[in-house]
Design a protein around this nucleic acid. Sequence first.
DNA 1: GCCACACGGTTCATTATCATCACCAACGGT
DNA 2: ACCGTTGGTGATGATAATGAACCGTGTGGC
Lengths: 260, 260
Amino acid sequence: MRTVDKALNLLEHFTIEQPEHGLSELSRMADVDKATTLRMLTSLARRGFVEQHPESKKYRLGKAVLKLARIRETAFPVTSIIQPMLERLAKETGETAHASLASGASLLTVGVAEPQRPTRVHVDASESLPYHATASGIATLAFAAPEIADKILKAADFSAHTPDTVTSADALSVRFAETRALGYAMAIGSYDADVIGIAAPIFDWSGHANGAIAVASIATRMTPESRPAVARAVIQVAIAVTRAMGAEPNADFMAVARRY
Amino acid sequence: MRTVDKALNLLEHFTIEQPEHGLSELSRMADVDKATTLRMLTSLARRGFVEQHPESKKYRLGKAVLKLARIRETAFPVTSIIQPMLERLAKETGETAHASLASGASLLTVGVAEPQRPTRVHVDASESLPYHATASGIATLAFAAPEIADKILKAADFSAHTPDTVTSADALSVRFAETRALGYAMAIGSYDADVIGIAAPIFDWSGHANGAIAVASIATRMTPESRPAVARAVIQVAIAVTRAMGAEPNADFMAVARRY
DNA sequence: GCCACACGGTTCATTATCATCACCAACGGT
DNA sequence: ACCGTTGGTGATGATAATGAACCGTGTGGC
C-alpha cells in the first residue's frame, strides 16, 4: 500500500522541532511530488489529521490525532499507568525518571517525572531518543526480538552525541551482552556528557522488550556505591510496568532480575 | 486520494466502545474488501498507527498516535491550556465543565473537569457529542463559519436522544438566532433528560467558532436565578480560552458578551 | 519599478497501483 | 465430519495515483 505509506510518512515529518510545514517544503522533505503531497494533505485535512492555517497556509497536525490518542489511552492506558510509577521512582531515587517505548527507528518518550531538587536532568516529553547512545536504548535492544534489534541497528545512524558515545555495532554488541548479564543498562555520558543513565527493559505480550524505564542522573551524583540501589529500583519498576500492561517479563531477564 | 481516505476511515472505527477489531469485522464495518483492509492495516501497522495482538490477532490503535498527539500538544497546546481553566470553571459553578472542539461531523471532547460533590454530571473524555442535541453544538454552530455550519447540518443525523431533542433544521435555526442574541446556548434535557447545558463558543484564528466551553448541570439544580451567573462564567472562560489559543473572539460575539 | 524566484494550487494524459474475487489453512461449534 | 467462521494470500483488470508543466500571487533584491 504505497499510497497509504506515503501519506503516513508525511505525518511523521511533523516533529517537535518542526511542527508546521508549507506544502513545497513538506513535499521536498518527504520526497514526494508537490501535487501528490497536496492531494494527500487535503485527504488528511478532511479527516482532521492535519489542519491548515488559513493565512500562512502552513500545515500542522490536526485534532484527529488527539482524538485517537485519547481513545487508545482510555482503552489501553499506558501513559497513565506508567506516570505514577515514574513519580514514585523519581522520589525514591531523587533523580529524573522516564519511560520510553520503541517506535520505529527511535525511542519515544512516553512519560517523565522529575525530582524536587535544584539540580536535575531534564528530559523532554515526546523527545525522541536514539538507541545507540542511551541506557534506555541499550536496555531495550538487549532484550528485544533479535530481528527487530537487527532491523533497528541497520537503520540507525550511530551519530556521536558526546566523545563517549558508542558508535560501532560491535561495541554495541558488547554492551548488549553486559546488559543481559546485569539486567540493566548503564550509559555514562554517552548522550549528554553530564548525565548517567540506568535503564531496565519493559516487555510486551510477546516476551520481547519494546521499551525501557530509566533514571537519568547528574553524572557526579551517581557513584559506584549508589548505583546498585538505583538499578534495583529501576528494575523493579520496569517489572511492575510490564505486568501492569498485562505482559510478563522475559524469563532470561527475570532470572537475573530476581537477584535484586 | 481515495486510498488514503479509506485508510484513515479505518482508523476512525476504533472508538472507546470498540477499541479492538478483528480483520473481517473491521472490513465489514468500514465496508472495504477484506484483502484491502488487511493491506491497509499492515501499512498502518508498519508505521505504528495500529498494532496487532499476536494471539488474538486483533488490531488496536498503535503508539504512533500517542507520539503525534504529544507533538501536536507540545507544539500547539490546547488541552493543557484548557484543562486548568475548566477546573476553575467547575469549582466556580460547582458543576461539570467541559470543552469540545469541532471535528468533522461531531464535537470532540478535549477536556473535562468535575466538581467535588456527590451528584454531578459525568462527561466522558474523548466522547463524541452531536451538534444538534447539545448546548456546545448549538453554541459552536451559531458562531461558526456559515459554510461549515451548513455542511455539518447537511451531514447531521438529527436523531432524538430525548423527547426534547431538537430534530429539525428549522428549529435549530431558531436556536442559533437565540444563541447569537444571548452569547450563549442552553440545552435543557435535549441530550440527557436530566441535564441542562450552558455553552459559549470558542474561536480560532479565522474568527469563526470551532468549539465550545460548557457547563453541564443536574437539571434540577439549574434554576432561572442561577443561570445568569453560570452563563457569565462560561462566557468569560470561553473568551479566555480563545485568547489563550492566540485567537480573538468574533466581534459580534464580543458585542453581546461584554454585557456579562 | 521591475525582475526572478518561490510559493500554493491546478490540470490532464500516462501508467503504475490498488481493488477484487476466488482460494487456503486453521479454528470452533453443532 | 460438516459448516461457518476466522486471518491471510495471489493473479488480473479497472481504477486511481502520478508528475511535468502550467497558473496566479507575493516577495526579496537590485
